[in-house]
Simulated assay, not measured.
Amino acid sequence: MNTQSVVATPALLVGVDFGLPHFDHELDELSQLAITAGLKPISKITCKRKAPDAALFVGSGKADEIKFMAEQLGAQEVLFDQSLSPAQQRNLERHLGLPVNDRTLLILEIFAQRARSHEGKLQVELARLQYLSTRLVRRWSHLERQQGGIGMRGGPGETQIELDKRMIGEAIKRTKERLVKVKKQRSTQRRQRDRRNAFNVSLVGYTNAGKSTLFNALVKARAYAADQLFATLDTTTRQLYLGEAGRTASVSDTVGFIRDLPHGLIDAFQATLQEAVDADLLIHVVDASNPNFPEQMSEVKRVLHEIGADDVPQWLIFNKIDNLPADLQPLVLQDQYEVDGVALPRLFLSAQTGQGLSTLREMLAIEVMKTSALDAPATDPRFDLDNYGEN
């Protein structure tokens, strides 16, 4: 058995501040993404620009600086915190003499490494193919592109590009067809839960907010949970028995969101995220210990809107309060938090230590009983809404 460990590729991280409020000056999230993908960040460099340079994204002067730093530090790859166009990526690689990748490809690589289910692998493959289809000019840059006879352009390289485009187009079509079948299977499973009158809860939130840890604590499951980005990619659903309500709720743990999540992945993961769209309740898990949690909440809200789940009732769970210093501990564990003029129920808890979990179960039991009361016949004395909650 070969026990030799794989040496992580040293990578130089680059971020460009275009004046947007969410710019990560420390490139902490890009660093986490790189480590999750198996790379070794060795240094970071940032700069400010009003707009991207059309050719090199950062301009020739900054590109020279990046090249010098990469040579001095022994970097073998350069990672950009923003998405690069195919032309910018190709030009940067020629200028730097190193492989250049962007945030989008990094996320795709992580998804490809982490997908376990048949559906997850299909979704990642679709997103990867869609991304690759725009990069063919780079992939085939080594092929000949000489001018032909009078009035003719191109050469064998152009023919290969057209062939590859057609092959990728056919692969995208096949993968989409297979995903449609998976989506139908999921719809059948959801209809079965509906026939059982199940109350459906979906955990959503920014990646590494602690959704899987909370999921495991609630339903006594063993879903993979780790202090890293995108620990969970495949939706897992389990039943949660609520003794106070005398009923079970169906709880689903979904893939985490992240800033600038590639649109191809949002489209490709539509089947998985459909669990959130069809839920009776969304539990939005927030990392209360992260100082950037307002921006992370906004990103989750944007993705929920994009998939059509922004109208689903939502609770906010501010997780990881065990990581908060004493002076930032909440004075009350239950209150309301205003989001875009709407007051949402909020609960502070720690999925890791269990603090606040019993309160969350009680809240869920009450919500399920309310739903049962609304669905029950008016003559059933157990569900008298006028006397609900009275002794």
Rank of each mutant, 00 (worst) to 15 (best):
T379Q: 06
T175H: 07
R114D: 00
V14H: 10
N197F: 04
L96P: 08
F257Q: 09
P262G: 06
V286H: 05
S358Y: 00
E306H: 08
G155V: 01
F269V: 10
E306I: 08
R116A: 13
A326P: 05
V255N: 05
Q160C: 12
F293C: 08
V332F: 02
A115F: 09
V100Q: 02
Q228D: 00
E65M: 10
S298H: 09
G205M: 05
V312D: 02
S31E: 11
L143N: 13
L30E: 08
P262R: 06
Q32I: 00
D311G: 05
A63C: 15
A376Q: 10
L13R: 07
L108C: 13
Q4D: 12
K121C: 06
A365I: 13
R135N: 06
E119T: 15
T207Q: 02
A34M: 07
I283S: 01
M369K: 14
T371W: 08
R94D: 00
Q270Y: 05
A37T: 10
A309H: 07
F318Q: 06
Q296M: 07
G59N: 04
V180L: 07
M167P: 00
P381R: 12
T248K: 11
R259Q: 13
Q88R: 07
L92I: 09
T353V: 06
L203F: 10
V303Q: 05
R139K: 11
G157V: 04
K40L: 05
G38T: 11
Y241V: 09
E77N: 03
S60D: 09
D386W: 00
Y206W: 03
P325K: 06
E306T: 15
L214D: 02
L360M: 12
S252I: 08
D386L: 07
N292F: 01
R174D: 08
Q314A: 10
V124S: 15
A87L: 06
E119C: 07
F215K: 11
S141K: 14
A54I: 07
T213F: 01
V286R: 06
V285Q: 09
L39W: 03
L273R: 09
G15Y: 01
P377R: 12
K320L: 05
E338A: 14
R139N: 01
R191S: 09
G59A: 03
G120V: 03
L282C: 13
F199D: 03
L122C: 03
E306F: 01
D102T: 04
G341N: 08
L106C: 11
M297Q: 12
G149M: 05
V332L: 11
R103F: 05
S298F: 00
Q130M: 15
S298L: 09
Q4H: 10
I35R: 15
G210Y: 04
G354Y: 02
I321K: 04
